[in-house]
Design a protein around this nucleic acid. Structure first.
Length: 592
RNA sequence: GGUCGCGUAGCUCAGCUGGAUAGAGCAUCUGCCUUCUAAGCAGACGGUCGAAGGUUCGAAUCCUUCCGCGAUCACCA
């Protein structure tokens, strides 16, 4: 990075002194594997300001660089590409400069604006499923990446604890539950509540079918099924503060939270601050009233309030019902403002929500901008694709979901089975093994999901399950474990100083180049809100290391200088793997 | 219908701020455990980058049109 800046300067200098022209910019790229060199200057763009043959121009600039830049050892020109060979000395100096640095690649903590990252935000009427897992992993990872990029980060979620959906579970439990509790049934709280949500749906469907066979029209039957009317009545009571309903609501939500907590803990995600919709759903109405006075919104004859977004190519959007009650949008406006009030230092928020809500967030951000909030410019919808099954969409009501808890358990079991098969864990206690199986199982799952570009949809086939070989979490964890094994055997060479007076093996040089990329990858991932960039970077690093490991003897090297260097190089690769995986929320094992 | 996103090897994905013969993994096939963990390494096979135009010295990458898949356009959340 630094070298590239120096080179850009020097190339401009060269153009100036040789061709008497100013170059607006210089284009670099890593040299392709099939050519000699480390960094390549593309000559073609210069032809706009320098007339002549690209090979000649490249050669002249190459000569200039070789003479004036110490780090450039050699060069060659192929067509319009000036390939620069960077000296071993340069890479060794670079390595020395980061040797003692912890978390090389992370920026100074809290050196940038505070950002709030929202993720998870589930409904409280059913357990979490694979879709929530993607959301959680993405949100958590992006939060960690933003931290590493220097931001202060608040992780949050808004728990959708009120509404018709939870009333459905409550009602079904009241009718059919016979006082069942998590304790009495042995069911995890969220699963118990989810069970009654499914119960409700069954009854509802039966009632609708009955009404239809009695001669009702379908649409009417769906609106008038007695159990639905009852649920709606229950919601009204809740809003009126009916004691019995509220206390049932508290009890069942409590069960769900306990269940969620377990799942979050197992997944390894956490939150700094929680918002509950039951506290925030009334927010926003005053803001809308103010906005109405300021002319941001307008009122229709029936009293409903709207915003006109046709100038932006969107439609009119309702922000307050004619009866004065809030819609989803009203609430989100209020919540956003509330958050900035609660955490005055935040300048920017990330909403981790599926791409089915793209339109909603586009509108929300526009409204906040029109209301004149400066931070509204820095809102980001981390929109991700749905996780689908081969059979289609996951539907909780119909039971066609991959349950989060089941999936995590499955992954652990698969990891255990493979580990036992390989049998490399002699000396490990049962407890240590359990921890390891979890590390590997979760590593496989998290990597599998995070390595794909967030905006792409994922087709998850439970039959084929998640791989443990190739471009996978366990592959990377395995490399880390191998490195730790070397370090255990290396003795004092893990800390001895590095001399930079020897020739690098090509594999060593490649590794150093790859390590050098880490800081910019972190910034890029933060900028793009994409954990996939970190995953792919780590994979490339690890592949490079394994190739080195295979070809070059580390502990078997007889020259002490080289042996020490290789040990330290391996150690640093291990650190980068660990730090990179930390950004994905994945643990690394000492052995596996 | 309008808007947005996606379409790269049999499968899963990189590459997309334009640059050299488009890269990995899985699957299939071939080698490599008397040397630091074979969840590994080395190699073979496999591509009209959805299609057609355009911009450019140069396009998987940018623009237009079309096709396919998905989402969205509620006084639902």
């Amino acid at each position: 990075m630094e070298l590239q800046q120096v080179l850009e300067q020097k190339v401009k200098e060269a153009a100036n002194s040789i061709f008497k022209t100013d170059l607006p910019s210089v284009e670099f790229q890593p040299t392709r594997k099939d050519f000699e060199g480390d960094l390549t200057v593309v000559v073609f763009p210069m032809l706009r300001t320098i007339k002549g043959n690209p090979v000649e121009i490249g050669t002249k600039i190459g000569q200039y660089l070789q003479e004036h830049v110490e780090a450039i050892a050699k060069f060659n020109v192929v067509k319009g590409f000036l390939n620069l060979v960077v000296s071993d000395y340069y890479y060794l100096s670079f390595f020395n400069s980061i040797l003692g640095k912890e978390r090389f690649g992370y920026q100074e903590p809290n050196s940038k604006d505070a950002v709030m990252v929202e993720y998870s935000s589930p409904n409280t009427n059913k357990p979490l499923h694979l879709g929530h897992i993607r959301n959680n992993l993405l949100g958590y990872s992006v939060a960690e990446i933003l931290k590493a990029a220097g931001h202060k980060v608040y992780k949050t979620q808004i728990i959708n604890d009120r509404g018709i959906h939870i009333c459905k579970s409550m009602l079904a439990w009241q009718k059919f539950g016979e006082g069942e509790t998590p304790e009495s049934s042995g069911l995890k709280g969220d699963h118990l509540v989810g069970k009654y949500y499914v119960e409700f749906d069954k009854t509802y469907k039966n009632e609708v079918a009955q009404l239809i066979s009695d001669g009702k029209e379908k649409a009417l039957a769906e609106k008038e099924a007695p159990i639905l009317l009852e649920a709606q009545e229950m919601l009204r009571k809740w809003e009126a503060g009916d004691e019995d309903v509220v206390s049932l609501w508290k009890k069942m939500n409590g069960w769900v939270y306990e269940g969620f907590d377990t799942t979050y803990k197992n997944l390894g995600v956490d939150f700094d601050h929680l918002y509950y919709e039951s506290n925030t759903y009334l927010l926003g109405r005053n803001v809308v009233k103010d906005g109405l006075e300021k002319g941001v919104f307008f009122k229709k004859e029936d009293g409903s309030v709207w915003i006109d977004l046709t100038e932006e190519g969107l439609d009119e959007k309702i922000v307050l019902r004619s009866d004065g009650t809030a819609v989803y949008m009203t609430q989100d406006i209020g919540t956003a403002i509330q958050r900035v009030t609660d955490f005055p230092d935040i300048n920017g928020m990330v909403y981790t929500v599926g791409n089915e809500q793209d339109y909603h967030f586009k509108v929300l951000f526009l409204i906040l901008k029109r209301l004149g909030y400066s931070w509204a410019e820095k809102l980001y919808h981390l929109s991700y694709g749905m996780v689908d099954l081969p059979s289609g969409k996951m539907k909780s009501r119909e039971g066609t979901v991959v349950d989060a808890d089941d999936l995590i358990k499955n992954m652990e079991e698969t990891a255990a089975a493979i580990s036992k098969d390989l049998g490399k864990l002699e000396g490990y206690s049962e407890e240590e093994k359990k921890v390891l199986y979890r590390t590997i199982g979760l590593g496989a799952l998290k990597y599998y999901i995070l390595k794909v570009d967030p905006k792409k949809r994922i087709l998850f086939n439970p039959e084929e399950s998640v791989d443990f070989q190739g471009n996978t979490g366990p592959f990377i964890q395995y490399t880390y474990a191998r490195i730790q094994s070397i370090l255990r055997k290396a003795g004092d060479s893990t800390t001895s100083a590095i001399e930079n007076s020897f020739a690098l093996h090509p594999k060593e040089k490649e590794l150093l180049k790859q390590i050098q990329l880490f800081p910019e990858k972190v910034l890029e991932a933060a900028n793009d809100h994409s954990p996939a960039l970190i995953a792919n970077y780590t994979y490339d690093l690890v592949k490079e290391f394994n190739s080195f490991y295979q070809q070059v003897s580390i502990l078997g090297e007889s020259m002490t200088i080289k042996r020490n260097f290789r040990v330290q190089l391996s150690k640093k690769v291990g650190e980068v793997i660990q730090d990179a995986f930390h950004l994905l929320g994945i643990q690394v094992p000492e052995r596996m």
